[in-house]
Design a protein around this nucleic acid. Structure first.
Lengths: 153, 153
DNA sequence: CGTGAAACTAAAATGAT
DNA sequence: ATCATTTTAGTTTCACG
């Protein structure tokens, strides 16, 4: 697909940090009428540049007070075994992100739990019942000093 | 602030996965008129339940083809030294997330770069110039088998 | 690719229950 | 706290430059 120009960049920079901005507001900020703004957004959606418009909640307001990164090592690294692991992870609501990584472990998981009791329950009753895990290491997040979702375009 | 009820939960579940949904659509899905939907959203925003409406882009479409997790160990763990490190990280556009964690390292960083050359440049010219870093370990993300931003409410 | 206006659709404010 | 209505604002399409 055709490359993105300066107007698209400005458009996306606004949308990244506020997805509920109106087309009117965007047209004023970019000094264009609403028509090209509307058409460009549709084009960027169809072209796959825009993946999703999401609402970020405050996890702590919903009792998700604990964020944990878990490094996981598997025993069997065959394609089927890895995919089976991924499918099991897919079922777990607590796992927000799961990445296949290079290095000393195989997967890195970002997990949200209510608290330590909830994490204990997650590990004993859900996570550690998954076969093919040889070992895992949990890093508890004490706080986030930087969290953003927008790229500098 | 007062607790969230079943209607708020449904509302937030819809908004989490599509922040550009209209109030009308929400009113149809929840079998309510637009007024309470509108008021509830405003209340959830003011109450801090809703943090931000963001647009997620496809990093690969913007040449951010490499995602790397970096575990960082610091030499000095005094409050001022840790805050100084955080402030340096704040300046780096490549760092999307930075967490202070428990365990064998101090910080975990999520970093996006164009490619290996870009990562090399980031490490040599930006990251490793930060004082107080004793060692760091990079895990390259080969792929994400699960990435979501919505909590099950 | 862009403008500007028309027609359509939705949001916000109001008063009533 | 919700509904029905009105007013205000935003979206979308189209003829045209």
């Amino acid at each position: 697909m055709k490359p993105i120009d300066e107007i698209d960049r400005k458009l996306l920079n606004e949308l990244q940090v506020n997805s509920r901005i109106t087309i009117r507001e965007l047209s004023e900020k970019l000094h264009l009428s609403t028509t090209p703004i509307h058409e460009r957004i549709k084009k960027l959606e169809k072209g796959g540049y825009i993946k999703q418009y999401v609402t970020l909640l405050d996890p702590k307001k919903f009792d998700k007070k604990l964020m944990v990164y878990i490094s996981v090592s598997l025993r069997d690294h065959a394609k089927e075994a890895v995919e089976a692991f991924e499918q099991e992870i897919e079922q777990l609501d607590e796992v927000m992100e799961c990445y296949y990584i290079s290095g000393s472990s195989d997967f890195l998981l970002k997990v949200f739990c209510d608290d330590m009791d909830g994490f204990h329950d997650f590990i004993t009753n859900k996570f550690s019942t998954i076969d093919n895990i040889t070992q895992f290491y949990s890093s508890f997040v004490m706080y986030g000093s930087k969290v953003k979702y927008d790229f500098k375009l």
